[in-house]
Amino acid sequence: MTQTLRRRAALGTTALAGLLLSACGTGDDGSGATTITLYTSEPQEKIDELLADFAQVEPDIEVEVFRAGTGDLTARLETDLNAGDPGADVFLAADAPTFEGFKEDGLLMELDSEELDAVPDQWQDPEGQYVGTRIIPTVIAYNTAEYDAAPASWQELTEAEYDGQITLPDPAVSGAAAFNAAVWYLQDDLGEDWFADLGGNSPVIAESNGPVGQSVAEGSQPVGVVVDFMMRDLHDAGSPAAVSYPEEGVPYIYQPIGIFEATEEAEAAQAFVDYVISQRGQEYAVEQNYLPVREDAGTPEGAPRLDEISFMEEGLSEITEVQGEALDAFDSTVGG
C-alpha cells in the first residue's frame, strides 16, 4: 500500500470514529436534570410532541425514548431482564395482559398518584401498579369515496356487499389483534359463527394496523378493522376515510403505563406518569386524536364522547383463557 493510501485510510477511520462518537450523543450535559428512560410503542411524532409538552411542566426531567413496535419492545425487555434489570424506568405500551405478566414477575412498583382517582376503576390495576393512558378501540373504518354510509355493525361486515373489500390485522402477529379476536370470540352474538361468515367475504389479512389504515385510505381495501385514532389522523390529513363505532360495541385496550421496580429515579418516573394521566396530559392526548381515560378531558374532533361508546368489557382471565381457542377459530375460518 502506498503512503498516501495509508494516510487516507487512517484519516477516514478517524473521521468515522468521530462521527460515531458524536452520533452516540447520549452524554450527560451536567445541568442537574434528572433523566429517565421510556420504552413505548407510541408513534414517534406523537411521543415527541407529548414529551415537548411534558418538558414545559417538568423542565428538570429529561425523558429518553426507546420507541419500537410492541413485539420489539417486549423482546428488548426480555433480553434486558435476562442480563439484569430493565433498560427503562417507565413502560408505556401494549395492553393490560402484558402488564399483568410484569406484575406476576414482580417487575412493577406501586404508583403513587392523586390523578389515579380521576381514572375510572375499570381502566386501572386494582393494586395500583399500572394505569390506562388512552382508550384505543378497534372500529370499522371505511373509505368515504367508495361508500356513502358506514357499516353500522360487525354483523354487517358479513354481508355480500363487502365481499373482497375488507382488510384486518393478523391476530397471529399483532398482540392487540389477538386480544380483539378473543373479545369477539367471547361475544354471544358474534363468536365463531361470525368468524365463519366474515371468512366468507375473504378479507385480506394485513400484517398490522399500519397497512390496514393505508389500504382503507387508498381505497385498495375500502373497509378495514383498525384502531380509531389512526383513521382520524388520516382523515385530518385529507384522506377520504372515516370510522364507525359498531352498535354491538367495540373491543378496546387502554394502553397502560407503569414504573419498573428497579428504577433509580422513582420520583421523576412518577412525575411523568402523573403528567400522562393528568387533565393536561389527557387533553393533549385528545389533541392527538386519542380517546382519553378521563371524562374531564373532552373528546377528539369527530369522535363520540366516552359515554356514547359501548365497550365490550371482558375479564382479563377469560380473555387469556380463550385466546388460544379464538386464534385457532380465526385461523381456520377467516385466515383460511
Binding site: A23, C24, G25, T26, T37, L38, P43, Q44, E45, K46, E64, V65, F66, R67, A68, G69, D72, A75, R76, T79, G87, A88, S208, N209, G210, G213, Q214, A217, M230, D233, L234, A237
Partner: peptide
C-alpha cells in the same frame, strides 16, 4: 437496529418503519 438502538436514537430504516407503522405513510 430496531432492537439495538439507544434511546433517542434512530437509523433511517427504523425511522421509515416507525413512520409507516404510525400511519404517516406519506
Amino acid at each position: 437496529s430496531a432492537l439495538l438502538l439507544a434511546p433517542n436514537a434512530q437509523t433511517l430504516g427504523v425511522a421509515i418503519f416507525n413512520l409507516q407503522q404510525a400511519g404517516s405513510y406519506g
